[in-house]
Design a protein around this nucleic acid. Sequence first.
DNA 1: AAATACATGTAAGCGGTTACATGATTTA
DNA 2: TAAATCATGTAACCGCTTACATGTATTT
Lengths: 176, 176
Amino acid sequence: MNIQNVILGFLFEEPMSGYDIKRIMEVSVAHFFDASFGAIYPALKRMEKEGFVKKEIIQQEGKPNKNLFVITDKGKEEFIEYLESPINPTIMRSDFLIRLFFGKFTKKENIIKWMENEKKHLEQELENLLEVQKSSPDTDKYKKITIEYGLEYSKMTIILLEAKIKLLKEEDQERL
Amino acid sequence: MNIQNVILGFLFEEPMSGYDIKRIMEVSVAHFFDASFGAIYPALKRMEKEGFVKKEIIQQEGKPNKNLFVITDKGKEEFIEYLESPINPTIMRSDFLIRLFFGKFTKKENIIKWMENEKKHLEQELENLLEVQKSSPDTDKYKKITIEYGLEYSKMTIILLEAKIKLLKEEDQERL
DNA sequence: AAATACATGTAAGCGGTTACATGATTTA
DNA sequence: TAAATCATGTAACCGCTTACATGTATTT
């Protein structure tokens, strides 16, 4: 999977601009995929050159013009081919867990700070996902599963972090 | 966080070769960080040049010689500095979830195949983590939390996937 | 006889990110 | 008046992966 495959997926659903793609990613797949404009725009250009998408320039008033990209039959084929290709393993890269792993080299204060920070982020993600779930109750069942997945993950992790933070704080109390 | 920080962390615990570092990563942090030899060896070289580590060549019989890397005081300072620097957000990149998200464009057969594949991987990870937990009961509490984290994540996800696979399969049964 | 473990290393290339440039309109 | 939203794009750079090269000893 790469940025091209993901863009093709979104354009399979409806024509969009690069800007739209970025925005929709943020409210749908951000918990397991993200991309910057610096990746999206050059990808769209390449894809146009290869005939996977075609560009339609939409004149707008008061706003910059919009490049609306429409998926072609060749693009649809390419996407279907991706779906038939071998799946890549899920990758997680966590600075938080690396720091925790080497936690004995720093003050407990730092560790609690990191945990509370991670918890805060997960609470934000949980809130976002609940919002998404509420605002689009008619999404297809597969998209719903990806939301549930994120919901369960953040809930579980918040609970775990809460318990561990509490334990670490209680250790300090006992010493008084 | 980058490969250098992680290597410094491991060398802070004990001197190791590049090969050792790779092996130990696979049985300790693989569920939230991984690196290839092509990243580890050049990193060690750079770090030696910058004075973060020093190399000791160990003569071995029947095996290739080993480059044992020892962390220097400068290296320790560098690692402590990393632990004080702003934390990077956790990144997850899941081909599985992207495919599921666009699941409506393929056959249910494919989706069940992906889910069963993902479940199989998580069961393997769960097994590995249980093995690690059993084989090193005296690790420090912070490392234990990172293992628990992985354990809870894989358990939760296996249960969720099992339920969803069952649901999808039942849908088919009802149609008969 | 083939594969795996041990052990190190490099070069080419990929798939991005970060930072910048541009510019109107709207909101705080 | 500063910041955010809308909108596109590029250039420099980074951090890695993949593939290859080398070679012995052990296991299958």
